Structure formats: structure tokens, C-alpha cells
Deep mutational scan, measured.
Amino acid sequence: MAAGGDHGSPDSYRSPLASRYASPEMCFVFSDRYKFRTWRQLWLWLAEAEQTLGLPITDEQIQEMKSNLENIDFKMAAEEEKRLRHDVMAHVHTFGHCCPKAAGIIHLGATSCYVGDNTDLIILRNALDLLLPKLARVISRLADFAKERASLPTLGFTHFQPAQLTTVGKRCCLWIQDLCMDLQNLKRVRDDLRFRGVKGTTGTQASFLQLFEGDDHKVEQLDKMVTEKAGFKRAFIITGQTYTRKVDIEVLSVLASLGASVHKICTDIRLLANLKEMEEPFEKQQIGSSAMPYKRNPMRSERCCSLARHLMTLVMDPLQTASVQWFERTLDDSANRRICLAEAFLTADTILNTLQNISEGLVVYPKVIERRIRQELPFMATENIIMAMVKAGGSRQDCHEKIRVLSQQAASVVKQEGGDNDLIERIQVDAYFSPIHSQLDHLLDPSSFTGRASQQVQRFLEEEVYPLLKPYESVMKVKAELCL
């Protein structure tokens, strides 16, 4: 049975990233139509530049190519590739079939990587351009969430054990800070992308030097003109047959890092959902379990974690691919890159769409948070109580021993009897502590235990987050809708 299948058929496997999760716009960027249309555009740009620099290419040939950029006979191309065992030459023939007058000058002087690699770089750039505003929107939604809850005390956790208090907004800023680093890295790697350009079979530009009869300047002009037509500021000066596969490492490393950030955020949300302090959106008709109707599973956060793990592992592909590119190139890269580049971007696209949807509907339960604080705060307040007693004339050592005994009794009630923490009640009825009984409410005010959390939130948002989001103001209103 021949390899390949009808990918629109229910009898043929289709990647869930495309069929179930990723956005239509990201799927289109990695589609065959987008790819092969870009090949034709690159052939047109090459012909236009070659004509401008004096090669015998007519206006009629150029116009014929322009008129057929979208006229792609995919069936013919597939048949040609089956016959020739070469995808680029299959599309040269297919393009030439609908451009008979231009057929002889299509791909003039070029090698397969002229269309293959340059198209990949265009796709990487455009895919990054799709991700950047999506990530900015996630940051914006979380920034709104953090600002609104900047002063809401909550129990902090280290080692997932109760620690000092923080605020809900401050905790959210930990998430935002990681995503801001990801946004900066995505922008950097996007701006650092260079075009492969017009380089020939081993990167020496020998074929173009021959076409222009040894004119170095025209060869350099050709490279520059096509690079500018493709919208790049610069091209690699040095290439082998391909652009260095280190570029793929750079791009997928940034995406993998984004995956790590999203995994951490969504894990926190899942843990908070278990504590009943916070939940992701839950639709009115949504079913959490087929057997347990009360369940409210954090399905979206779980999906993000599941896909983020996949995204983090994909960076190993370009690392290994770059390491086995012998001399000017081997074909070890080809099949692998067809999979890992598309999957990385479709996965990143999915987790950003999902995280935006989550961040637009996060639900906080202040009463649950308050109750958990009441359970733990008495123990945390013991040092403040000791200091207040010393100020009232008591002995630190005597007070410490009193607190120690009462704390152990209260802990026994919590752990052995399943009761509430009654340390404060014990202190309130103990005559030894009568000098500070009137101060206990103040000493137990949760806001006095959150330090500068709310001020940190305000400063972080104003100095770091809002300036970073400013270039994306025009796209901030787009909502994230999930079908599944």
C-alpha cells in the first residue's frame, strides 16, 4: 500500500493539533497551500530580480507567473513527485505547466533550498508574528487579574506546605514575570531571523556568478533584492546548502521555554482548584465526569500541561538535527523538520489560546482563602504575639514557653481530632496574655502579614508589564474561544 493518505478522510490519521486544537490561522501558515504558494512567490521574486539585473526574462513571463501564483494543481504535483521522487522539481514542473512561456526560467540558477529553506524562514517569521500578540493578550488578562487582587491576602506555599502570606495578585505576578520573559525572547528570536537568500547549491553562489558572467556586484544585488522582497532586513552571508540548523534550535528553545512557563502556571491553577481557592472557567453544560456528576475538573489547565510537556520535548529534535548536518548538509534534517517545526508552533498556539481562555474567566473564592488563612495564621502570628507581650512588660522566655504549650495543644486538636485551630481562643482565655487581649485582632490582621506584596504588584505592572504590552494595544480586544 502506498504511503500517505487522504487526510480529510475519517479513515486516515490526522494530527489532533490540526484537527482538534490549533487555530485556523496557525494551521494555514503550515498548510501545503501556504507552503507551495510561497515557493511560487519566491520563484517570481527571483525572476523579477534577475530581470532587473539584466537576464533575458520578459515582462510577459513575469506576468504569467504572477497570474498563476494561486493556480496550484495539487493532484498534478503529487503525481509528479511520485514520478520524480523530488518535491521541488515536482512543483517546478507543475508551475511550468500553467506558465508555459515562463517554464524555462522558473528556478533559474537556484537549488531546492532556495524555495525550501527560504519558505521555512518566512513561515517561522509569520508563525512567530501570530504567537506574539496571543502571548501579549494572556499577559494582559493576567495583569488585569493581578491588579484587581493585588491586596487580597492568601496563604503562600513553599514545598506545598503553608508559608508566609502573600497576595493573590502577587502570586499571579510570578506567572506574568515568566511570560514577559517569554514574550521578550519570542520577539528577540523573531527579529534575529535572517533570510537564507540566493546562495546556490553549497552556499557559494557559483551558479549565479556564472549567470551574471562573473559580476560579483550583481550577485550581491540579486541576494539583497530577493531578501528585501521577502520582507527581511538581512540575509546570511555564510550558508551551506541550507541555512544553519542552529536557527531551528533557537526558535524551538524559546517555544519550549514558553511551554515550561505555561505548565507551571496551569499546575498552580490545578492545585488551587483542589484547594477550592480558584477555578478555571466551567461552562453551564460542561460535564466533569461521566460517573461523578459533582466533579469540576480543571480540564483546560490539564490540557495545557499535557501539550506543554510535548512542546518542551520537541527542542531535542533540532538539537540532534543540527549535530548531524555533515559538511554542507545531509538530508537527516528533512523529514524531522517537516514534523517538529509545525508541531512546535501548533502546540504553542494551542496552549496560548487555551491559557487566554482560562485567564479571561478565572474565578476566585475569597471566603475559602480566608478560612485557610484562619487555619494557619495563628501559628504564624506567634512571633508577633511574643513581641507584643514583651512590649507590655512580659518575659520573652516565659511567653515563648506559654505559646509553645498552647500551640501544641491547638495542633493536637487540628491533627488528632480534625478540629479547627483554636490557638487564639486559648490565648484569649489565658490570664497571662490579658495585657494584649485587646491587640489580638490587630495582630491577626492578614494584611499585616503580606509585606509589600501589593506595592510590588503595582510597581511591576507599571514599570515592566504595561510598557512591554504597549506595541500590542491594537490587538488586545480579541477574545479566545474554545470549541473543545
Results as ranks from 00 to 15, higher is better:
62 I>G: 03
301 S>W: 06
180 C>G: 09
258 L>M: 07
127 A>S: 11
79 E>N: 08
13 Y>L: 13
413 V>Q: 14
344 A>K: 05
98 C>M: 07
107 H>I: 07
182 D>P: 07
338 R>F: 01
413 V>F: 11
307 L>D: 00
174 L>P: 15
417 E>K: 13
316 M>A: 07
16 P>H: 15
431 A>Y: 04
235 A>F: 08
60 E>I: 08
156 G>W: 00
23 S>M: 05
418 G>T: 04
131 L>N: 14
129 D>G: 15
39 W>P: 00
117 D>P: 00
316 M>N: 09
460 F>W: 08
294 Y>D: 06
6 D>K: 10
402 K>D: 15
84 L>S: 06
77 A>Q: 05
147 K>E: 13
313 T>F: 03
162 P>Q: 15
39 W>T: 05
155 L>I: 12
390 V>I: 04
2 A>K: 11
145 F>C: 14
459 R>H: 13
417 E>M: 12
349 D>G: 07
141 R>Y: 15
189 V>S: 13
290 S>E: 00
151 S>A: 09
406 L>F: 14
269 I>P: 02
432 Y>L: 06
48 E>M: 08
291 A>M: 01
67 S>I: 14
397 Q>E: 14
292 M>T: 00
265 I>K: 07
35 K>Y: 10
238 I>F: 01
119 T>L: 08
23 S>I: 07
37 R>E: 07
91 H>L: 06
101 K>F: 15
147 K>C: 08
270 R>F: 00
181 M>G: 03
367 K>H: 10
321 T>N: 08
227 T>F: 15
155 L>N: 04
160 F>A: 08
243 Y>P: 15
453 A>L: 01
144 D>Y: 10
257 S>C: 11
110 A>E: 02
329 R>Y: 00
178 D>A: 03
72 I>D: 11
470 K>I: 07
171 R>V: 01
293 P>R: 01
413 V>G: 06
381 A>R: 05
475 V>S: 15
41 Q>D: 06
169 G>S: 05
152 L>W: 08
201 T>C: 15
297 N>A: 00
294 Y>C: 01
467 P>S: 12
233 K>R: 07
104 G>E: 08
94 T>N: 09
85 R>S: 02
314 L>I: 12
105 I>D: 08
425 E>G: 10
86 H>K: 02
112 S>R: 02
256 A>P: 07
96 G>I: 06
236 F>P: 03
176 I>K: 05
396 R>G: 06
286 Q>M: 02
254 V>G: 13
436 I>K: 03
15 S>H: 15
410 A>N: 06
35 K>H: 08
252 L>W: 06
451 G>E: 07
77 A>N: 15
161 Q>D: 00
53 L>M: 08
363 V>P: 05
98 C>R: 11
369 I>L: 11
30 F>C: 14
57 I>T: 04
348 A>S: 08
113 C>L: 08
172 C>E: 02
402 K>C: 04
453 A>H: 05
56 P>S: 05
382 T>D: 04
303 R>A: 03
469 L>Q: 06
183 L>M: 08
56 P>V: 10
322 A>Q: 07
183 L>E: 05
168 V>F: 11
117 D>A: 01
240 G>P: 01
443 L>I: 14
355 L>Q: 04
387 M>H: 09
451 G>Y: 02
259 G>Y: 04
135 L>M: 14
196 R>Y: 13
249 I>C: 07
191 D>M: 11
279 E>Y: 02
414 V>N: 04
213 E>I: 15
273 A>H: 13
